[in-house]
């Protein structure tokens, strides 16, 4: 996809989803974007187009962006049908115009999912992910000073695997890429990165049950094991974590159903 050291300027037709606000009808609008440096980023190209639109007195294209270095997960849009556009393991802000050829028609759409309603143009409301996180994607721990290093032993392979899951930036590309708009890769990453380390064990069952149940309630789809999510993930988080989530959820459900509970009604110091 990436042309080697190309410096020749290129022009593309940008086909962008324009939608004035939530629940309003939207449509694709074509814009000519000319004489672009192949080394400018996709977002810089949108900046240029927006400058031109503003100069003409038109409404600029609304798109979400923040760090522009692939670590925040804010810049989320679907470019030619793939979340975050061409390339592997990159966010939209890390896509460069050299990924396209002169004369290409480039279609840009917001992430499409019922749980991610469009706010305006390319911006979607991804707070559904926050709700899943709030359901259990944390450790209820003393928030005091930093604990002693190595006070809690963590095997290196577990730490490595936990870190793989923890690279999730919560951008929502997995949902956008999934044929069923399922959030399983996101939930799997969040459940696994805490479930793999000792600090996460106490709330492990409660966490997986609550996060999956919240995911279901928010109207995400179901996993059909097609692995589009992990292919679109800017952090290349493996769908192995989904298998791990399935197993975790199954075990937690059985334990929640059959584990004895305290029947004590009194006693003690009172």
């Amino acid at each position: 996809m990436v042309a080697a050291n190309s410096t020749a300027p290129l022009s593309i037709t940008l086909r962008v989803w324009r939608q004035a606000g939530p629940n309003q009808p939207g449509q694709f609008v074509d814009y000519q974007s000319k004489d672009l440096s192949p080394n400018m980023s996709f977002l810089e190209m949108l900046d240029v187009v927006n400058d031109q639109l503003t100069a003409k007195g038109e409404e600029p294209i609304a798109f979400a962006h923040d760090c522009r270095e692939g670590i925040c997960g804010t810049c989320s849009c679907t470019i030619n049908g793939k979340p975050h556009g061409p390339g592997k393991g990159v966010a939209t802000c890390q896509v460069y115009m050299r990924s396209f050829r002169d004369g290409d028609v480039v279609t840009v759409e917001p992430f499409r999912a019922a749980a991610f309603p469009v706010i305006k143009d390319l911006i979607t409301d991804r707070s559904a992910f926050d709700k899943i996180q709030q359901a259990g994607g944390y450790i209820t721990a003393r928030a005091g000073s930093a604990p002693d290093a190595n006070a809690i032993p963590v095997p290196k392979p577990d730490a490595d695997l936990a870190m793989d899951a923890a690279t999730c930036i919560g951008c929502g590309a997995c949902v956008a890429a999934c044929k069923n708009a399922s959030a399983m890769l996101f939930v799997a990453a969040k459940v696994s990165h805490l479930g793999l380390v000792p600090q996460g064990q106490a709330e492990r069952d409660k966490r997986v049950l609550a996060m999956v149940s919240t995911m279901d309630e928010l109207g995400f789809g179901n996993c059909t094991n097609q692995y589009e999510c992990s292919a679109a993930c800017p952090k290349l988080i493996s769908h192995d974590f989904i298998a791990r989530l399935n197993r975790d959820y199954f075990n937690a459900s059985l334990r929640a159903s059959f584990q004895p509970e305290s029947q004590s009604t009194g006693g003690g110091a009172g």
């Binding site: 086909r15 939207g26 793939k82 759409e109 999912a113 890429a177 179901n222 692995y227």
Partner: peptide, 29 residues
């Protein structure tokens, strides 16, 4: 599951359809 999956995509489908690596068998189940 299929009915839920259809609802989950939301009111507007993608204008540009693209498959990264889902197999034909998986897409025709």
């Amino acid at each position: 599951l299929t009915l839920e999956n259809r609802r989950a995509r939301g009111p507007v489908p993608y204008g540009f359809k693209h498959t990264i690596r889902a197999t034909l068998a998986s897409r025709t189940m």
